[in-house]
Design a protein around this nucleic acid. Structure first.
Lengths: 143, 143
DNA sequence: AATGTCAATGAATGTCACTTTCATGATGGC
DNA sequence: GCCATCATGAAAGTGACATTCATTGACATT
């Protein structure tokens, strides 16, 4: 899966006439071996420990590239930081966010999606995308 | 209803030992007679036309007060601006957001809420709140 | 190997939307 | 009216991006 995404990114880059560089490889490796929901800042700090002279701007631009290439997706959870999550081919999911420990879980629910379509249709609304987030305490933090 | 909210706010203020001022009255009036989803900037500009020397910081602080008093609620729709919506006693609703004209519609769906509860329960998650936003084209912009 | 070409990099700077500070100005209780 | 507080608004500060630009580096050409 890590290998598959590397290929997707490599293909995207060559198709766009963009170059493969040390930094981009390092950032991709680090991203793929990280949490599913990572902010630019977090990834930047994680990288700095091993590669002290990689720039914030490079991390920022490279994550944008990942998003364009379809291997990452930008997310806002309302804490003022953009997070990037891994994307697997065509999937969609929503989130359970723990307000105590920050833990993020994913879920899918076909019925909810269907009901959303109904709501949108009844208003003449054409859906492009949606976001559903449930905030609360995760099982661990309830103890 | 406008009158009721003014009372709620007046009660909140006196209970907190805060003062009633010209500015706060003006801002409350303007807020109550506005769109249901207004950014600080929008409200500030609207106010400036009639009250040129009211400060941005005052609008900002007063909206926070409205939120504390429970007559407004902070919302993020991912455009980088915080919006404040009117709150009516105990109600909850979700949003349809037009990505073209910025129009925001509200909706409620009991079944979706119930399904969310089920999802949360199955993960041992204790819900505090949730947000559901559907982004797309409104009926008008589809034409 | 030296040079040319051009995208990539990263330190520095800019931008935007708040958020706080602080010197002044209002308010409400006596 | 007096005064301890609170409120105001101009200005400065903050945090998280987003852009600039001089330099670097990778490959192609001489």
């Amino acid at each position: 899966m890590k290998r598959a995404k590397k290929k997707v990114f490599a293909d995207f880059m060559s198709q766009k006439g963009l170059k493969s560089t040390k930094q981009r490889d390092i950032i991709l490796d680090c991203f793929l071996s990280s949490d599913r929901h990572l902010s630019i800042e977090e990834l930047y700090l994680k990288l700095r420990s091993k590669h002290p002279n990689i720039g914030y701007a490079t991390v920022y631009r490279t994550l944008k590239l990942f998003a364009e290439a379809g291997i990452a997706r930008e997310m806002q959870f309302g804490d003022g930081q953009t997070r990037y999550e891994h994307v697997s081919e065509g999937e969609h999911h929503d989130h359970l966010v723990c307000t105590r420990c920050g833990h993020i879980e994913e879920f899918e629910n076909e019925t909810i999606e269907k009901l959303q379509d109904e709501v949108a249709n009844s208003r003449g609304f054409l859906i492009e995308r949606h976001r559903l987030e449930i905030y609360g305490l995760c099982a661990n933090c309830r103890k």
